[in-house]
Write a protein that binds this DNA or RNA. Structure first.
Lengths: 115, 115
DNA sequence: AATAAACTTAGCCAAATGGCAAACTATGGG
DNA sequence: CCCATAGTTTGCCATTTGGCTAAGTTTATT
């Protein structure tokens, strides 16, 4: 478990904005140029471009320029660290439940055995 | 798919900070008072309390006061929306791969059939 | 050559975030 | 009653975020 985990922070931060999630949802259906990506957001291009750069910084999107249009694509593998983190938390939680289980067992045993 | 999704935004925002993830990691192992929660972060109490309130706002943590100590507890079900969102994205992505598959099939068929 | 299209850059602004110190409010123990 | 413990509240600060307009820049298209 890395103490400094810029990946996860960037990832969660990128996903914490509804506009960026909207853009990502569009890209999950296939690549798109910036203008098409901007349309459903209702925001101006500079704003959308900054959101895009946040998504790129998180590794969720790659872009490349073909002529005068920049094509953006979703990078699903960037979600892996988040998935891993989720699993990790679940593992800790499960372990805790197991310990609780053991504890309850102990209590029951004490009850039946009696002092 | 809700257009306004404050839940997800609050959730991702709460998780986007390493200090908050550290606190949450501690709580996944079991409830703890604020001071114990603060210790590993290296930050002062007011700072930790504000992080705590962000976690509470996201529903990830509940707290209650018993005497002069506030006990904090992890609420794992708060992670569900995030899990659901992940699955949703995966579904969209998978559907896209299927369509791509169909497309490739079509191309292959055209090749063999010839014009 | 001139115009339109598709970004891109620069700079401005208000609000939110993340840190702190200092002062205040319980509550539990001696 | 007194004092330490455990929070809590208040205000301060620098930085980041998320929006904009206005003014470039680079490719098509006509």
């Amino acid at each position: 478990m890395a103490k400094h985990d810029p990946d996860l922070s960037l990832l969660f931060h990128a996903l914490s904005d509804p506009t960026r999630r909207l853009m990502l949802g569009r890209l999950a259906r296939g690549p798109a140029p910036v203008t098409e990506l901007a349309a459903p957001t209702g925001f101006k291009l500079p704003t959308v471009l900054r959101h895009l750069s946040v998504l790129e910084a998180a590794g969720l999107v790659t872009t490349q320029k073909d002529g005068r249009v920049r094509s953006c694509a979703f990078m699903p593998q960037a979600l892996q660290p988040m998935h891993d983190w989720l699993e990790e938390q679940r593992a800790i939680w499960d372990a805790r439940l197991d310990r609780l289980d053991d504890y309850v067992m102990t209590l029951m045993k004490e009850q039946t055995d009696g002092p």
